[in-house]
Amino acid sequence: MHTQVHSQSRARGGLIAWACLTVAIVAEVVGTSFMADAARHGGYLGYAVMAVALAISYYFLALSVRGIAVGVAYAVWEGLGLTLLTVVGIVVFKDSLSVQQMIGLVMAAVGIVCVTLGEAHTS
């Protein structure tokens, strides 16, 4: 019985850590998107939103490492943030990517999947 309770608690802690990492990634994407908008169009409100969102992002990233290895959490945070920001750049800011850049992003995404799957098996 004790082992079952411990494994349920550990699973819940891991789920909370991944939820915190998800919040950190979303906040990073929001903050960096507002930074890009402010840099391109001016205005201090965008920089203010950026500062708050990035502070939230780092806070939740820090919380996530309670249940996820720091290297894994950082790799997923950075990699998914990069991928999502690329999508925002293309959709919102009308950025374009070269074939080489697209290949690099696909390689980064594959690496993130490998790192994440490795974390799931070592927990």
Rank of each mutant, 00 (worst) to 15 (best):
49 V>G: 05
95 D>A: 10
105 L>H: 02
64 S>W: 00
104 G>Y: 05
96 S>L: 12
21 L>H: 00
33 S>Q: 07
116 T>Q: 10
37 D>W: 15
99 V>L: 12
91 V>K: 10
49 V>M: 05
26 V>G: 01
119 E>I: 02
79 G>A: 02
116 T>G: 07
6 H>G: 14
56 I>S: 01
33 S>I: 09
44 Y>R: 15
122 T>C: 10
71 G>C: 06
35 M>G: 06
9 S>W: 15
39 A>Y: 08
22 T>P: 00
11 A>E: 06
45 L>K: 11
58 Y>T: 06
67 G>E: 00
41 H>F: 15
67 G>I: 02
62 A>V: 07
107 M>W: 09
103 I>A: 12
113 V>K: 03
62 A>G: 11
91 V>I: 15
95 D>V: 11
122 T>W: 14
119 E>D: 06
66 R>S: 05
41 H>A: 11
52 V>I: 11
43 G>A: 09
77 W>P: 00
44 Y>G: 13
30 V>G: 05
62 A>Q: 08
61 L>R: 07
87 V>F: 10
37 D>K: 13
74 Y>A: 02
113 V>A: 09
58 Y>N: 07
68 I>P: 00
20 C>L: 07
3 T>G: 07
119 E>R: 08
26 V>F: 01
63 L>R: 10
41 H>K: 12
56 I>G: 01
48 A>G: 12
42 G>F: 06
16 I>K: 07
27 A>P: 04
98 S>T: 11
121 H>C: 06
97 L>R: 07
